[in-house]
């Protein structure tokens, strides 16, 4: 193809251009205490906060040509753009949360004016304050468990007496009987695999839940998304008291040591902004 490259605006636009262009307000997070933006400003120089109803909204101005509905749709198809912007979103919130409790917002929560942002803060003021109160002195931690199914299958086939016995029988049977025995063996392995996986996932989740204030199970991501050989068998998040984080991490370590010989591996990440623990009550968002 021979299209000429359309001219792109440089990422950092001059002030003159900014003032000429229509802008939107991008909301990162909300806090109850006055936020320290010293670190966060290093990431996004135009960061500031909007104060209303005893809440602080940490925001920056973005160009409508980049974040307006149509542009956003187009940009969301550009993976490099998405990667850069979601990383910035995350880093800004992380920088703010080193000093105070935050309610993180979903990527690309945008307002056209400060008035509409303030109206939103007023509408949800009580809910936001309750959530921030709940989140005080707590951290979100994420635990994902992956299973190397092949390895687990092998470890079952080599060690389970029932399977070993069927294996022996297959060796000494006629072709027809061997076929049915093999089928039976495959089904047994499948059941055992499923049991083992839910046992490891469920037990780990329950034990970690006991060490946390709140816990939540998230949907498993397919291999195409994780780009890992192993299957994701648990995707969970926990809200943990800061004082108990060490216990929590020790428990993850113990679980990992118990399970990894069988083909399970653990990913424990944090502290995260509490993305999983700041849901608004349903009625309010539906009616609003």
């Amino acid at each position: 193809m021979n299209f000429k490259d359309t001219q792109r605006l440089p990422a950092k636009q001059s002030l003159k251009m900014q003032s000429a262009e229509k802008q939107l307000i991008y909301l990162y997070c909300v806090t109850a205490a006055s936020p320290t933006l010293k670190e966060a400003v290093k990431l996004a120089s135009d960061l500031y906060f909007v104060y209303s109803v005893d809440l602080y909204a940490i925001v920056s101005k973005v160009a409508e040509s980049e974040f307006g509905e149509e542009s956003l749709k187009a940009n969301m198809a550009d993976l490099e753009w998405v990667k850069t912007k979601i990383s910035l979103h995350e880093k800004v919130i992380e920088a703010v949360m080193t000093n105070t409790c935050v309610i993180p917002f979903k990527f690309a929560t945008l307002f056209s004016t400060e008035e509409s942002l303030k109206a939103m803060l007023t509408k949800y003021a009580e809910e936001f304050k309750a959530i921030l109160e709940k989140l005080k002195n707590k951290e979100e931690w994420g635990v994902k468990i992956y299973c190397d199914t092949g390895r687990l299958r092998q470890s079952l086939a080599n060690n389970n007496p029932e399977l070993l016995e069927i294996g022996n029988k297959i060796g000494s049977s006629s072709v027809g009987t061997a076929y049915f025995l093999k089928k039976k063996k495959d089904e047994l392995i499948k059941d055992m695999l499923n049991n083992k996986i839910s046992e490891c996932g469920q037990e780990s989740f329950e034990l970690l839940k006991e060490l946390s204030v709140e816990a939540c199970l998230n949907k498993l991501l397919p291999k195409e998304v994780t780009e890992r050989e192993e299957d994701m068998v648990l995707n969970s998040a926990f809200l943990v008291n800061k004082l108990e984080v060490d216990d929590f991490i020790n428990m993850v370590d113990n679980l990992r040591m118990n399970c990894e010989g069988q083909g399970f591996s653990f990913d424990c990440t944090g502290p995260w902004p509490p993305y999983n623990f700041c849901r608004l009550p349903k009625e309010k968002t539906q009616s609003g």
Binding site: M76, S87, F105, K106, T109, M120
Partner: peptide, 26 residues
């Protein structure tokens, strides 16, 4: 969290966090 993958961030930033109807909606 500094070292986490884009996947970990995506898993949270895109469909978690407070979802309110801003003026532009994805």
């Amino acid at each position: 969290s500094k070292d986490v993958t884009v996947l970990e961030i995506l898993d949270r930033v895109l469909d978690k966090g407070v979802v309110i109807s801003g003026d532009v909606i994805i």
